[in-house]
Amino acid sequence: MKFITTKQWDEDLWHKTKDIYNVAFGEHATKPEKIIRNMFAKGLSSLHVLIENDKVFAMALTGSMPNSSVLLLDYLAVRKDLRGHGFGQELCEYIKEWARSQTQFKRILVEVECDETPGNLARIHFWEKCGFQLLDDYKHCYKWGPQHYMAMVLYLNRKPATPLNGEDCLKYMATFHKESYKLG
C-alpha cells in the first residue's frame, strides 16, 4: 500500500476515489464535484489516498486558506467494506506527517457533529484515538443543515501558549467553506 497526495485536480484519481466519498457522506453532506474542482483550482485543497494495486482503500480531502497555519481535515473516509481495520487511522497518521512536512501548518482542525447519537460519538472517539481533542463546548449550526458541529484540534508540534477556542475554529471553517463555494 502507498499514500498519494495531490494538490492538483487529478481526474483519474478522483474517479477511483469518488465512490468512497459519496458512500461515506451521502448526497446531503458532500460537496458537489464542481465545488471540489473549484477548490483545487483556487489552491485551497489537497486529496490524500491510501491505494494498492490501483484500488483506493481510504481518502481524505484537506484544505486551508492561503497563508494559513491551519489545515482543515474536511473529509476522511474508508471504503465501506474495509472499515474497522485501521485504514482510517493510517491515513490520518500519514496526513499528520504530511502536514508537518509543510512548514506553514501548526495545527489540524476537524469539525464533528456533536448531537449525542451513537454514530457521532463513535466519530468523536475515532478522532480522539487519532490525537485530536475537543475544544470548548461552542456549537455551530450551518444555515444549510440542522446538525450542530464542534471543533477538534490536533497541534502538530506543541500546544501554543494561547490555544485556539471552538468559536474561532468554527469561524475559520465557515470562512473556508464559503470560499470553497465561491465559483470563479
Rank of each mutant, 00 (worst) to 15 (best):
H48K: 03
I108H: 10
L135N: 05
G145I: 11
I95A: 08
D12A: 11
Q102M: 14
S180P: 00
K96G: 07
Y21P: 01
K178S: 12
I124V: 15
Q104I: 15
F87V: 11
S101L: 13
Q89H: 13
P32Q: 11
C169N: 01
R79M: 06
L76G: 08
I95N: 05
D81E: 15
G119L: 15
R158Y: 11
F57T: 10
K16E: 02
N165R: 12
R83A: 04
L170T: 06
K143P: 08
D137N: 15
V49M: 01
A29G: 08
L13W: 02
N165W: 03
T175G: 08
E90D: 12
A77S: 11
R79L: 07
H48Y: 04
V153Y: 01
K16Q: 10
I95S: 04
H148F: 13
F57K: 12
T162N: 13
K139E: 11
M59V: 08
E116H: 14
P118I: 12
L44E: 01
L73I: 09
E90W: 07
K139R: 15
A99P: 07
E33F: 06
Y75M: 03
I20D: 00
G86A: 09
A99Y: 08
W98E: 15
I124K: 14
L91H: 05
I124M: 14
G84K: 10
I35H: 02
I108N: 09
V70D: 04
S45H: 04
P32G: 05
S64H: 12
G131T: 04
N157K: 13
